[in-house]
Design a binder for these strands. Structure first.
Lengths: 181, 181
DNA sequence: CGACTTATGTAACAATCACTATGGAAAAAA
DNA sequence: TTTTTTCCATAGTGATTGTTACATAAGTCG
């Protein structure tokens, strides 16, 4: 998972993977079938492990604004954590462009789920009256997602947690500007 | 350039490049030396051609706010233009992570120039009095850059120009919130 | 027209790619 | 203890990687 995360699909060879796992090719193929299936399993594992650390804190928020703020602030922390490659594996994946549509479909599914999660959160906030009905939910969800995706690139470039927290703070100012009537 | 832009460094083979150029390997190597040097020449060509279309409109702006707005709105248009691959080649490049530090250095240089351009613009606005001295220039520059980088990922995922213009608009609301005392 | 430099295509280079057939060792079952 | 099954490494599969030696064709100049 870490190798694919860091180097991408094409640039990571089966030799690299075997060396990192301390295994020989036959064992790898007996366990995962192919390099492609291993990547899918790796990114699914990534989502299952890393997902809660980002989506978890949002669930405890008492307002949509606080949820989005936690989403971005937690991202600033997680994406720059030093015990794994920087940035989000799903956001940074380019397997489809590298000529692997099967993986691309899985990645697209995970990305769509992130967007839909944000959208549903905002829709519920409109329903409950926290947000005025005039607010453009799709725009706001896409904006938050876009900022978080940009953070992944910044993190890979070497930005610090503080750098990204500044970005999150700036984005929340955008929220306040847009939500106001 | 388009092949590298779309598929990245590792996933683009010399065969692909030769086929796309209608040339055989010896000609390619006589002209460019190596795949690596060709990538560098391609991304430099990208910057020389595509750079002005983004940085050009900013120069005509009459305020820092308008300049940033043009930066983001023009990006929304250019990054989704249909006559070339979606997203920014410099932002989306992962050559360093793919194991090519020489290319990584060139990409880092181009990215740093973008950040420095934004930073200088904001510094000048503080100097001229348009922006209060209390504003965090580095934070604002990084925020604008981050949003633009996120746009590249969204564009590659299939977002439309209108989608990204919505993001740009939301980001400008963030500007207004941050610049106010 | 002939000599020479400049290209470009053919073919092949060693290395690495993803992947697998085979054989032997360890563990489980009888 | 013997048999059977599971497991895994050695070694090698054909294909493709980036790159180049050679030979032929084209263009340039005397």
């Amino acid at each position: 998972m870490r190798l694919f995360w860091l180097k991408g699909f094409s640039a990571t060879s089966v030799s690299d993977l075997c060396a990192a796992m301390g295994v020989t090719p036959p064992s790898l193929y007996a366990a995962f079938g192919s390099k492609e299936q291993l990547y899918v399993e790796a990114i699914r594992h990534y989502e299952a492990r890393g997902g809660p650390s980002i989506w978890g804190p949002m669930a405890e928020a008492r307002s949509a604004r606080e949820a989005i703020e936690r989403y971005l602030m937690t991202s600033a922390e997680v994406l720059t954590s030093s015990d794994h490659p920087p940035g989000c594996m799903v956001v940074l994946s380019t397997a489809r462009e590298e000529g692997c549509p099967a993986i691309g479909a899985v990645v697209a599914e995970l990305r769509a789920a992130a967007y839909e999660g944000l959208r549903a959160l905002l829709a519920a906030a409109v329903e409950s009256g926290e947000l005025p009905m005039s607010v453009n939910i799709a725009q706001l969800a896409r904006f938050a997602l876009c900022v978080q995706q940009g953070m992944s690139i910044q993190a890979r470039e070497g930005a610090s947690r503080e750098d990204l927290e500044g970005v999150a703070q700036a984005a929340m100012a955008g929220w306040d500007g847009l939500v106001r009537p």
